[in-house]
Nucleic acid binder design. Structure first.
Lengths: 345, 345
DNA sequence: CTGAAAGCGCTTACAG
DNA sequence: CTGAAAGCGCTTACAG
């Protein structure tokens, strides 16, 4: 399969078709087709067909195949953005696993437009995708309607919804453990810098988990803030909070937000972790590169992508798949958090 | 086009075909087809067809279309990796521009395997891509052979080659200007940390430009080193160089390599830029996020992607396109480089 | 095991 | 302006 199948003679003439192969091998088209699709073919004819195929470098026309089959072996993946660590890693995991299972992946980038997401659902369905994977941020009624209309197997990644199968990260427990971690280090004056609650996973669950940890302890002063996903916005929010609240630590709902806080702290002349602690969620590469390294709850995007690939294929085959799968996480300790107890000694 | 075309009734029955539309409108299939493809259709029939289409939510089967047309309006893009700033930005630029011109983009990720690149060329051609864009790192004889065989319009991004159209970044002049910049700041003991010369753009051209700048000045001590693209490898290389050479500045062939050098300098207890300067090439987002910010030669990947999209489409239409287009760059000054002249005062 | 025929949904000359 | 027919390359019952 590695070398011999390459259409070396393609440059000479036009692409060969199944009819060419049939003629060359002296058999009927249907026999060639049967050979190609693993049907029963006699040894002798098999030989002749193989010969003809390698002579011509024949390879079936996928459009003709799909036209008959009325579907492809392509999984359409809708992704809100291409330039995020989480997206890339998830896509890589999906792609590699899908390839291994002899499926193709088609990426549809929506540039963070929910409207484009809806369009993509219809468009992918129209292109006869075998299944659709949505790297979700928000599930609206329109999403639900679209998926109902197209009737293509669907898997959500990153958000869960009662109507669909989904694979999510363990945002709640990550929030909880992060809370416990921070409290365990002695921090008691905490700014939680979150995002919109329309994003259930990032905006709600992480915060809820964190709140639970807080409730297990006494006399802890916590304030909750909301900012945007982008670094400059987070930076601006942090600057304000620094004025009005002076927290001893920022617990940020994403690594990017944490980056913004770090920038704000620099520009205010503060040193992390000496003057203030910072934590994130995500486990982006950059959290390890920077100095001080960022303490964060790392999610396993690539693995999640691989798992999702296996699940969507199960779904295609109408085999049972658990409604919601929870991918794990890990608290990574780095320099951005100090041990206040130790400091007091 | 926004709302009305959506196949709301799709959920009810099977997808409708051109024949359904024809019957509903009381005309022939060919007339519907002509309407769809902008041929001449009478006002009255046009109305009826439009009515039928919006009633059914009809949308043509792309496989049937491609089967006839023997090609698609999809541009296949081969990318060595998904998780790099340069790749993502380029893809975003390509995708957005292509969409605007009514083309689709299909991404083929090769995970840095040259062999997979070759396979992708054949596979994309087999899928009747209208054109192929290769985010190139290295052009081997196999690439040339493959492209000759498939006879599909091709555009290279990032590397040039006499056989193909290409869009490259101005690596030579970026190297030159970076050299001048560093010299202008008074640095005279320089470690140039480059990469393999098999990568012409990154490994050869940047270095050549830099060398040219060096030659314009006297009594400058420069040593050239080679490392890998990954941060840990660069970090290890930097540590060694720090022992044997003690440069006053590291000029790194990529931002990632510069990140490795920064990490090495931290772990050696050095402060940038006080004890040592560092520069990169690329202009990745991370260079702005970190502290100190990294001085770098910024390339415009997204713009380059957009430009490439326009060019490949020109190529499809067999319109003239300049053989090699050079995308610009900009030296971004940040804190990782000091002014040694000023310091002496 | 093998082949002839019909059909997937569309487009494209060719008549009219 | 409009329609009947052929054909794109493949697969799938159906006979044999």
């Amino acid at each position: 399969m590695k070398q011999e199948n390459r259409p070396h003679e393609m440059g000479l003439g036009k692409m060969s078709t199944i009819l060419d192969i049939a003629r060359l091998a002296g058999v009927a088209k249907s026999t060639v087709s049967r050979y190609l699709n693993g049907g029963s073919v006699g040894e002798a004819t098999k030989k002749k067909i193989e010969q003809a195929i390698s002579e011509t470098g024949y390879t079936p026309n996928p459009f003709a195949q799909s036209l008959k089959a009325k579907k492809t072996n392509i999984i359409g993946t809708i992704v809100p953005r291409l330039d995020s660590y989480a997206s890339s890693q998830t896509l890589i995991g999906l792609d590699e696993q899908l390839k291994q299972m002899n499926y193709q992946m088609l990426i549809s980038n929506t540039s963070q437009s929910l409207e484009r997401e809806i369009e993509s659902i219809y468009s992918l369905a129209n292109q006869k995708m075998a299944g659709i994977i949505l790297l979700a941020t928000e599930i609206t009624d329109q999403h639900i309607e679209a998926f109902e209309n197209v009737k293509v197997p669907v898997l959500l990644i990153g958000q869960e919804h009662p109507d669909f199968h989904s694979l999510i990260h363990d945002d709640f427990h990550a929030g909880y453990e992060m809370g416990r971690y921070v409290l365990g280090k002695g921090y008691r004056k905490i700014a939680y810098l979150g995002v919109t609650e329309r994003d259930i996973s990032v905006g709600v669950k992480r915060k809820q988990g964190f709140k639970k940890a807080i409730q297990e302890v006494e006399d802890c002063e916590v304030r909750f803030y909301e900012t945007l996903f982008k670094i400059p916005a987070a930076q601006a929010s942090a600057r304000e909070i620094l004025q009005e609240f002076k927290p001893s630590i920022f617990v940020c709902a994403t690594d990017n937000i944490a980056m913004g806080v770090l920038k704000a702290s620099y520009s205010e002349g503060m040193t992390v972790p000496k003057d203030m602690g910072v934590t994130g969620f995500g486990g982006y590469d950059v959290t390890e590169i920077i100095h001080p390294g960022l303490t964060t709850a790392k999610f396993f995007y690539k693995e999640a992508g691989e798992k999702a690939a296996r699940q969507i294929v199960e779904l295609l085959h109408e085999r049972p798949v658990e409604k919601v799968t929870i991918s794990h996480f890990e608290i990574i300790e780095r320099e951005s958090v100090d041990n206040l107890f130790q400091r007091r000694l």
